[in-house]
Design a protein around this nucleic acid. Structure first.
Lengths: 158, 158
DNA sequence: CTAATCAGTACTGTATTAGTTCTATTTGTG
DNA sequence: CACAAATAGAACTAATACAGTACTGATTAG
């Protein structure tokens, strides 16, 4: 459930790469080669991240991309938000839900903002610095037993 | 960012309807009419929710669907999980990522479980009972100022 | 000057989603 | 008992979104 696009997936991978070299710029080609990702895709994603202000870009020969801020000040929410647009799970949850044809009978309009908030807070709490370290240092003791109740229903994880 | 399908959206709407009548069964047709949702869609969703054990179904004349458990014991994660399959944002985050062709160069495989956990915990923390009340009683003091930084990048909220 | 590199846009095949339709099965009611 | 109301389940279709590519232009180090 809850799909994140592959763009965001690659985006996080690339950001962690840049976080690990600590501010030093890397070219799109270098990163693509390092991670074995398709170069055009990598280029597209880095451009978007730079537009969003998460990366500094240097044009020309010997140019490349580097983190615009320390890794600790960049969250998963920032990266995903930059690549997929603002947090909005359904159309109704955007600020302008004028176009919602069922608005009159919806009445439940309050539940999506609530869910959005929860997810956003969760993503905001994960920093790029944390994600750059291979070993997860936060225990958090999550019980997977709870999800096995629903896990068997649809084998399709997408 | 982070899209949830309309099926899950409708699913929550329908579940809140059933939560508000407190266990009393309602037919798919009744619910569809009440919320002005397409009947075939409603039928499909209710069937899935019943299969997942979240609803009891009664066949035949005067039949219908009712909550299988108290609303307080049903979470947003349960509903969404029942309609979209288990929590898995990317392919890599399922237990079997044998097919991941980039596994050797991935190295970041640890970040998706972490994000999945955070989102799952967030959804698990929201009960159907909470969602059934029109006024959100939990303050949670979310600061939207943080997201406006990325909000303007892509106007497409989907 | 020129090669390397980023910036931006437009395009395409494929997969997913949203929604429909049809048939079978169950069960209350006259 | 027959019929109508309702769920169960699967198969199908049109529209949309995604993943990835291609191309043109702008910038800059050497």
């Amino acid at each position: 459930m809850i799909r994140i696009t592959r763009e965001a997936d690659y985006g996080i991978v690339l950001m962690t790469c840049l976080a690990r070299v600590d501010g030093q710029p890397r070219s799109a080609a270098t990163l693509a080669q390092q991670r074995h990702l398709p170069l055009p895709m990598v280029g597209k994603i880095l451009k978007a991240l730079a537009r969003a202000g998460l990366l500094n870009s240097q044009r020309g020969a010997q140019g490349g991309y580097g983190l615009a801020r320390p890794a600790a000040e960049i969250s998963a929410a920032d990266i995903i938000g930059a690549l997929e647009g603002p947090l909005a799970i359904t159309e109704c949850s955007t600020d302008m839900h004028d176009g919602c044809s069922r608005q009159d009978h919806c009445e439940v309009s309050s539940h999506w903002p609530r869910i959005n908030q929860a997810i956003y807070a969760a993503l905001q709490s994960i920093s790029l610095e944390e994600m750059s370290h291979p070993d997860p240092p936060r225990p958090l003791h999550f019980h997977p037993s709870q999800r096995t109740a629903t896990a068997g229903i649809a084998g399709r994880p997408v």
